[in-house]
Simulated scan of single mutants.
Amino acid sequence: MKRGFKMDARSRSLLDGVPVFLAVAETRSFTRAAQRLGISPSAASQAVRALEARLGTPLIARSTRSLSLTAAGAAYLDQAGPAFAALANATLEAAGRSTRPAGPLRLTMPRSAYDGIVAPALMTFRQAYPDVELEIEVEGRLVDIVENGFDAGLRYGDLLAKDVTAVKILPASISVLTAAPAYLADHPAPSKPSDVLEHDTIVCRSRTTGIIVPWLLVAEENGSCRIDPRAPTVVGDMATQVDLTIHGHGISCSSLYCVHELLRDGKLIHVLPHWSVPLEPIHVFYPNRRGQTPALRAFVEHLRAFCSTWTAGTASLGKEHVHHHAA
């Protein structure tokens, strides 16, 4: 915009009729210009006459057979044409920005959700949406996403605040007991839950409560039982627990979505396959009044697609209990 130019009611009215003039100048016909703009030929003619009146000079020389640009019309076309094209392009680009996933996206989530779902999905998400600026906080406690400036969060379960919208990205699943082949080569595999008490174990301490999370095992035919491992190795997150398990430090109970590829590849072995710990579904939640931005919508849909692939992957393990608990 030129220095000293001020947009006001009068200057805004000067733009009225400019698109019609440009269409007439390009097509050299009021009829064809009117068809392009979706108006009547008489309306097109009136718009150009009104523009000429405001400018104080004729822009188009009319005759019964043809029309042509006056010298003033040609000069006006040379200046107004590129300027109006730039304005149209800027408008289209701005409209595109409002629908294209881009800009900052702040998220909060527990460590297990990050390790098992978000981290594996990040590479393909970044490739698909390079203009989204992700900021991820891994928390061991529930946080107020509005008060702390987050756009959305990931949480287990269905009990969320009334003023948020929740989108389920992963249905109810399970945690399973696993051990490394090397560990089981030196230690007989347990045949019943109580046998686990005689094994080395790795457990997680809840960052929310500070307690060691017990293993609340259930089996479709044999009821349920609680296992409190004796003298375990205690860690603060699922990733460390899985890593120690892979390296043969004992038996652990980990989310199936964190270990299903390790089970498939033989790096871990499923212990007590008829027993598991039920897990609640995982949701993405965000404030009702904000709604989904294009960036958040893209993130949610990407995670849902990733989790549907994961669900298919767990089904391929061929474990009946997986189908039973994940339904």
Rank of each mutant, 00 (worst) to 15 (best):
H199G: 00
T201P: 02
I202N: 07
C204E: 10
S206D: 03
S206W: 00
S206Q: 05
I211T: 12
I211F: 12
I212C: 06
V213A: 12
V213H: 01
W215A: 09
W215N: 03
W215M: 10
V218T: 10
V218E: 11
A219L: 04
A219F: 06
E221V: 14
N222Y: 12
N222D: 11
N222L: 14
S224E: 06
C225E: 14
C225L: 14
I227D: 01
D228E: 08
D228P: 04
P229L: 07
P229G: 07
R230M: 08
A231Y: 10
A231C: 06
P232F: 09
T233G: 04
T233W: 12
V234A: 03
V234C: 03
V235D: 08
V235C: 04
V235N: 05
V235A: 07
G236V: 11
D237W: 03
D237H: 02
M238W: 07
T240Y: 04
D243Y: 02
D243N: 09
L244N: 06
T245V: 15
T245G: 10
T245H: 03
I246E: 04
H247M: 14
G248T: 04
G250N: 06
I251F: 01
S252H: 02
S252W: 00
S254I: 03
L256G: 06
L256A: 11
Y257T: 10
V259I: 12
H260S: 15
H260E: 13
L262C: 08
L262S: 10
L263F: 07
R264V: 11
D265Q: 08
D265G: 13
K267E: 06
K267Q: 12
L268K: 02
I269P: 00
V271N: 00
L272G: 01
P273H: 03
P273V: 11
H274G: 07
W275R: 02
S276L: 10
S276M: 13
S276D: 00
V277G: 00
V277S: 01
V277R: 01
L279P: 01
E280I: 13
P281D: 05
I282A: 01
V284R: 04
V284F: 03
F285Y: 15
F285D: 02
F285W: 09
Y286T: 05
N288H: 15
